[in-house]
Amino acid sequence: MSDHNGQVSATPITERVQQLTQLLAPFKKEKPLPEQPKMGFFTDTSLCIGCKACEIACKQWNQLPATTPEWTGTSYDNTQSLGATTWRHVQFIEQIERRIPHVNASDEKVLKLPLFEMDTPVPQMGMDLSALPELAGTPTGTALPFFSTDRWLMRSDVCKHCANAPCQEACPTGAIIHTEFDTVYVQQDICNGCGYCVVACPFDVIARDSEGDGQAHKCTLCYDRLKDGMKPACAKACPTDSIQFGEVEQLKRDAQERLGFLQERGLTDARLYGADDKILEGGLNSFFLLLDEPETYNLPSNPARPSNHVLPTSLGVIVTAAVMGLIGTFFFKQE
């Protein structure tokens, strides 16, 4: 600071003051920024093609290290879960009915070559073609379902940015905040890696980077990008608009509309997850359209809000302690 000006005597003091201010810096709570419209994700699994662009776009923007490659064999999902350095995760769920091709009863075991028995006539050279069954005339109309009966469900998972976020409620340092966009954000200059948020999260999202900086990490909803009005990296990259980003209120209206669209097309199993206020008593700012029950995607259908446990459990503590105290008093008072 003062190398040229020769304020040598002042330096140690300045430095110490600086050190002290640095030490105390985290204690200075900045004024919250003025509230903006709530921003969130609507992840519509009916549009997901499982390309995993979201996973990479997230890694790229946030410069997150790759996880150790591990081939899992669980369909095309080698990512397995969200984590400290994985903030988007695409799931693959195979729901395929087994249609066993019919074979002649005599050949039911393993069929060895060569075997060219026919059970439908293959037209032969010089054959009277009129002997073959009639072709259907004019088309009778086709009503193809929106998805074929065999399904390979895909879903890009991400932090739910809960309106009442258990991680935020649990955080003892105030590192986790609801930002001005009502997104849930871990302030890395504050977090000391206590790990309480990890067990508070009902969605398997937030994690501590034990191999890295020892702090808690999760999707930031690209807080830095939001500051400049840019889309989060995953939503921007998603080729099929399966990940939509926008104002939560609008997204929720869009989601309802989309649900109606799909249900009209016969997808009776389609449902929204986290779009109403039910989950965690306030809903999710990052919510989903699912094509099956939440459990199929490892989503809890109605998780408890951990902070609601504080009072009843504390009551138990107080009552028990009181009883035990009284007993102790009683016995001590005994002659």
Partner: peptide, 17 residues
């Protein structure tokens, strides 16, 4: 303790790179 969001300096100054 839950009503006010304790912003840090870094959060206030956050900007895309």
């Amino acid at each position: 303790g839950s009503r006010v969001q304790p912003f840090s300096k870094e959060s206030r100054e956050k900007a895309p790179r």
